[in-house]
Design a protein around this nucleic acid. Structure first.
Lengths: 154, 154
DNA sequence: TATTGACCTCAACTATAGTTGAGGTTTTAT
DNA sequence: ATAAAACCTCAACTATAGTTGAGGTCAATA
């Protein structure tokens, strides 16, 4: 709303409220992301956060990654491998999104396999620890023989 | 291990440790499920939990539902609509698993759509709140016109 | 200039799904 | 009979992803 800090053409910094309004996340979430190292800010003379415009793209990338099921810690790790003082490029985005699409695909594949097993088990209902693929997805138990399970498996 | 409580042929109750060993969940988890109303137990003279054998099937159903992404509260709601003093029947299981398969299918469909959008956006990288389908999945913003977003949307 | 809105920090709280530990009792095995 | 293993409750803690509120400061506007 204000044009105080120079001519609008040259104003490149955003307040936290502006970033919230334009990115669709709450101010408290931006604070939170900053504590987690997902975004970074500079401070003005009054200790208020000032963001470079590139933060909008960063937040967008974070939100998309979250939709694909990537935990914030992993997003942070991926972003921190990139320079944090320049905007993300289209190339950065392509690299990140390709990786995340892979993990999304894995998730989809796992869920699809689960759905197929569920479908084939609906009429069965055995749910036996030893026999049912739904209960024993990785065949972990048969790996060391049958019988009752170990107490409190890792 | 013990045959104390009657001839083995008639022993129908399980201790919490036995349930843990046979179901593959921790004792603490069984306690936790009980506080959430997901499973139920009787107590012996010494105040120790004694479970009817049907609890094994219940725990199995809970774990399968969790794999499909159903929250415990929903699982509890579904299970509590059934009599809690008899084992789950194959028919119970069929009804539950059909519902859960539906919600699993919805999850898969959403993730698949997301993956397809991600794929088509990898080369783009605009991530604009207004234009990018990845950022604006439900077209919530255009529903009330364009421009900057409302602050702190619900 | 004064007031209001936006901002600051820090602690505490929400929700989900449990785990861990302290302190004490019961059951099982020797 | 006694020691060990299993059990009990309850509170506190873990992790993830934030939100809320108190108490105080800064900035924009009337």
């Amino acid at each position: 709303m204000t044009e105080k800090e120079g001519h609008w053409k040259f104003r490149r910094e955003l307040s936290v409220g502006e970033v919230a309004a334009r990115s669709g996340v709450a101010v408290s979430t931006l604070h939170f992301y900053e504590t987690k190292g997902l975004i970074h800010s500079l401070r003005n003379r009054g200790n208020q956060r000032r963001y470079p415009r590139g933060v909008l793209r960063r937040v967008a990338v974070i939100k998309v990654a979250q939709r694909t099921g990537i935990p914030l810690a992993d997003i942070q790790a991926a972003l921190s491998a990139l320079p944090h003082d320049r905007p993300l490029t289209v190339h950065d985005w392509a690299a990140l999104s390709k990786r995340w699409r892979e993990s999304l695909n894995e998730r989809i594949d796992k869920l699809t396999a689960l759905r197929d097993q569920l479908t084939s088990c609906i009429g069965c209902g055995c749910l036996s620890m030893e026999d049912c693929p739904l209960r024993n997805p990785e065949d972990t138990l048969n790996a060391r023989g049958s019988g009752p399970q170990l107490i409190e498996p890792t």
